[in-house]
Structure formats: structure tokens, C-alpha cells
Design a protein around this nucleic acid. Structure first.
Length: 483
RNA sequence: UCCUUCUUAGCUCAGCUGGUUAGAGCACAUGACUGUUAAUCAUGGGGUCGCUGGUUCAAGUCCAGCAGAGGGAGCCA
């Protein structure tokens, strides 16, 4: 049995031929039956669907199947036949069985029943074995592939930006320090502060919070590049939308402005969602059903008006709304919740930062579709963004998705040396820490633009999972680095 | 970090205004049943009621602290 070649369950289920001798290897999901015949639902992760193994108890003894319990790893040889039962088209009439690894039913935590996502998060080493998580992680693979495919098809080059960075000026959030210095007794400088010149890199280093600045350097030679890698934020964020370690996609394009940037982001989102709709139908159907079940327990007002697949199609079939920050403020100021003072933060004047409740209102109530907001007040945005001619806004854009909020944040970058330099001084960043970034504005600078897409946020949208900790295999968040 | 809710069997939960031996469903074990679809039916075992302290004749239940989790907010992707 061990040396016998086996066929993935996915292929067996798709087979149009029957009466074939086949071998299958996988994990037992459930076993049921009686003294005369036993049915085993077997899954090998190649698909969400199980194959049914039928064991005629005239051939097998009870002892043979005793270890075929939920979670056990087994091999089965037999004949692929048309099923006489209702739940499946084909099944395997077993002639030989083998147990690779037992799973003591008294101790194996997964049962053939619904478990809470919170419980499964505590056993992340086993949650791959559930239908929900196998579906989520198959989709995670497909989405990764679709993103690389989209950029490759468009002539982008993938850049590997560094994970350990010596730059502390990205300003995207708190960083994780990378050091080999003795925490109890670090070398000190004369003024009593830690002397990082004696550390491994001879300077302070951290885990990256963004690959954007490095991507810009690549774009100013290769024209179109993107990064797709892990990023780290040491923020004490305890929400269902934040992780300490997450994956980000950051394209950067030379000779491009804010409008090109918005178009690229929209095209990318539509393209990858389409890819998932076309290639992950079974998994999407399962997740959609799961979501419907979950929503049944919610009050009607909180339920989503569209089921998962409809929601994805809605994105691929409708244009995103584009409007400026200024227009958004007008809409919000005149909105019912603002006039009735239902917002926690009322919108009174231009310049206010938009809160989640405002973004939600625009996306979920007012437009009811993805919204791209652009031309934000300079005061509430990062130093590297292109300063518009009006003297008060920058060419920044955010894409807001229903249920998730900000999924993309990007901008045209400031390519004029003097303007960038002035802004860096204004916000109080040490100029010499960004000498290399500034220097690109002195040698062959061009207008360029890019954005950052939170991969896990996109995963949440595509899978309908509502907690970001459930769309990454081993989530990292405050007080948790298990596994 | 702030607000709020929660923590009872392996899992999902019930346990009212404190009152004798803490319940259910699923899972598990045993038995029954000739094709099941998270099979069904019967019987059975299984709990230091998150941790520490307090109030009380009496605490799963009330109070305080701590820890963890959920939801919301801030920061953002």
C-alpha cells in the first residue's frame, strides 16, 4: 500500500470513467454504517469535497476498520464505481485498507461537527483539516497566484524588498527592533543611551513596515515593479482587521499619476476577484453557505444584503466610485446621520480625518459599492505624497470596500526634490536617514505612483471571513506568537 | 490602548432574585440496525464552574484584582 501510487481525491471525483482500480490516501472525516457495510468520508485537501469509501464487511473485519476514526491518516485501494447513494456520483468500493497514522478519538479535538472559529484558532496546527480552513487556504494560494499573474501579464517585475530595514523613516507605524545586543546589559554610549554601533548591523535595525520606498527605487529603473512580502507592525492593535505580521502588495509605476494609479488598483482588484470566481468555485460555495448559516443567528438588520459570490460578482461587474475628499466631506456634511448627530464624530469642516463610521456610511449606505477617495488634505497624509497645485491637498487615494474598510492606500509620489525636502523637514524627519530616497529626486526623477494592498484584507473580502486572524495560517497579534 | 460582553464536560451552550448530589445536545464507549450522507435508536462514563482573594451560615451565581477571548473604537493595510 505504501508504495502504491495514489490519485488525488479531486481527480477521482472529476473522473468520467468508472470501474477503475484506484488508490487514495488522505484523512478520515467521518465513518458511519452498520455490521454489514461501512462508509468512510475521506479528504486529502486537494478539494473541499470528500470521496466516499465503501467497505463491505464481508471482506473486512471490524478490527480492520477500528482505527478508521475521524482524523486518522489512511490509504485505501479499490474500485472507483458509480455510487448507488444519493450524495455523490462516484465512490470507492474498497478491496484493501491501510492506516498510516491513528487519531485517538478520545483525544483528537476535531469532531464531525461545527466548531467555533475561536476554538479552532487555539489549535491552528490542526485547523487546516477543517473544511472552512482548507477552503480559506486553498483560496489564499489562488489569490497569491492571481496577483503575481496579474502583474506579470502587465509587464511588472517582482522586487524583493528587505525584511530587515535600517530605515526608520517610513512612518507607517511602530516597528519591531532587530538586535543581538544583550537586553539585560546593552553597551551604552556616553550619554547613557544604547550604543547600536556595536550591534550586528552597526546601527539600529527593525522589521520592515513597508516595502514602498524600496519599490520606488526599483520603479525608477524598471518602470513597473511590485513587492509582495511580509510586513510588521508593533502597534498594540486588538481588532479583527489588524495583524502584527501581514502580507502586503505594493506596486510602483514610473511615468504614472494618481489617475493611472486608481485605474491600476481597480483593474487589479477586479482581475484577481474574477480569477477566484473562475477557479475556486467549490470553496467559494462552501464559504458562502458557511456565511449564510452564520448570518442566520444575527438580527435581520445586520445581515449582509448579498451572499458571498454575489458580492464578489458585484465588484467585478460594477465600476468603483471615484470622488475627491472634498466631495466626500460635502456628502457627509449633508448626510442624515450627520444632521441627526448620529455620528460619534460630526463632520463640520474641511480638513477632518474620516473615521470608520464615515467611510462605512459612504461605502455601505450612500454608494453601496467600492469607493475610491482621492486628493486628501496634506496635513493628514504621509510626507512622500505628491503635493497638488491647490497648496492644501496631496494626490493620495484610498479604496474602501464594504465590510472591510480601507483595503488599498496609495498615492502619486512627490518627485520634485525641493518640495519633498521641505516636507521632510516640516514633519521633522531626519534628512540624513533618507539621503538615498532624496537622491533619486536629483538623478532622473519622474512622476510616479503606487499603492499598498493589504493581502489579508483582500482575503477577508474574498472568503467572507470576518476576522483577519482566520485568513492567515498562523496569525501574529499582541500577546500571541503561538506555533 | 480605551469602551463593552464573555470564560461552566473534549466541543457548543443552559443554569432565574446566592440554598442539598451542576444539566442538555454533540463527541466518546457499549449494544441494535443490510446503502449511510455531520446516519438513526438505546444505555453508559465524563466537571477543582478561567485564576487569586473577599463578602456570607451558604458562592457557578455577589464584589475586587489578574489572565485570556469576542464585539466596537483608535492606529492603519
Amino acid at each position: 500500500m505504501q508504495d502504491r501510487k495514489h490519485t488525488p481525491v479531486k481527480e477521482l471525483l472529476a473522473s468520467t470513467e468508472v470501474d477503475l482500480e484506484v488508490t487514495v490516501k488522505g484523512w478520515v472525516r467521518t465513518k458511519r454504517g452498520n455490521a454489514f457495510v461501512q462508509f468512510i468520508a475521506l479528504n486529502d485537501g486537494s478539494t473541499i469535497n470528500n470521496i466516499q469509501v465503501v467497505a463491505d464487511m464481508k471482506i473486512f473485519s471490524e478490527e480492520d476498520l477500528k482505527q478508521f476514526t475521524t482524523g486518522a491518516a489512511v490509504g485505501v485501494a479499490g474500485t472507483l464505481v458509480k455510487s448507488t447513494g444519493a450524495g455523490q456520483t462516484v465512490e470507492i468500493q474498497a478491496t484493501q485498507v491501510f492506516v498510516y497514522g491513528v487519531a485517538d478519538p478520545e483525544k483528537f479535538p476535531l469532531q464531525p461537527k461545527k466548531h467555533s472559529l475561536e476554538f479552532l484558532r487555539e489549535i491552528a496546527h490542526l485547523r487546516f483539516r477543517t473544511s472552512t480552513f482548507s477552503a480559506v487556504f486553498r483560496i489564499r494560494h489562488a489569490l497569491t497566484f492571481a496577483i503575481h499573474k496579474f502583474f506579470n501579464d502587465r509587464g511588472f517585475y517582482n522586487i524583493h524588498s528587505p525584511i530587515i530595514t535600517g530605515s526608520d523613516a517610513e512612518g507607517a507605524g511602530e516597528m519591531f527592533r532587530v538586535t543581538l545586543l544583550n537586553a539585560k546589559n546593552p553597551p551604552l554610549k556616553e550619554d547613557g543611551t544604547v550604543d547600536y554601533s556595536q550591534d550586528f548591523f552597526g546601527k539600529e535595525t527593525n522589521l520592515t513596515v513597508s516595502g514602498q520606498l524600496e519599490a520606488e527605487l526599483g520603479a525608477l529603473a524598471l518602470s513597473k515593479v511590485y513587492t509582495f512580502g511580509p510586513t510588521f507592525r508593533a502597534e498594540n492593535s486588538n481588532t479583527s482587521r489588524h495583524l502584527a505580521e501581514f502580507w502586503m502588495i505594493e506596486p510602483e509605476v514610473a511615468f504614472a499619476d494618481i489617475n493611472d494609479n486608481m485605474t491600476l488598483a481597480q483593474d487589479m482588484l477586479v482581475s484577481v476577484v474574477k480569477y477566484i470566481l473562475e477557479n475556486c468555485e467549490d470553496d467559494l460555495k462552501f464559504l458562502s453557505g458557511r456565511l449564510l448559516d452564520e448570518e442566520k443567528s444575527k438580527p435581520e438588520a445586520e445581515r449582509s444584503p448579498l451572499e458571498l459570490i454575489e458580492k464578489l460578482k458585484f465588484v467585478t461587474e460594477n465600476d468603483f466610485v471615484r470622488l475627491t475628499y472634498t466631495e466626500a466631506i460635502e456628502i457627509l456634511r449633508e448626510s442624515k446621520p450627520n444632521k441627526k448627530k448620529q455620528f460619534n464624530y460630526l463632520i463640520n469642516e474641511w480638513g477632518a480625518d474620516l473615521q470608520s463610521e464615515h467611510e462605512r456610511f459612504l461605502v455601505e449606505k450612500h454608494f453601496k459599492k467600492p469607493v475610491i477617495l482621492y486628493n486628501y488634505p496634506a496635513a493628514i497624509k504621509a510626507f512622500y505624497m505628491k503635493q497638488n497645485d491647490d497648496g492644501k491637498t496631496v494626490a493620495a487615494m484610498d479604496i474602501l470596500f464594504p465590510g472591510i474598510g480601507e483595503i488599498v492606500g496609495g498615492s502619486q509620489r512627490e518627485e520634485v526634490y525641493e518640495k519633498l525636502h521641505r516636507r521632510i523637514t516640516e514633519v521633522g524627519i531626519e534628512e540624513k536617514s533618507l539621503w538615498w530616497y532624496l537622491e533619486t529626486r536629483q538623478f532622473g526623477t519622474v512622476p510616479h505612483a503606487g499603492f499598498g494592498l493589504g493581502f489579508e484584507r483582500l482575503m477577508m473580502f474574498v472568503t467572507g471571513m470576518t476576522n483577519i486572524r482566520d485568513v492567515i495560517p498562523f496569525p501574529r497579534f499582541p500577546k500571541n506568537a503561538e506555533f
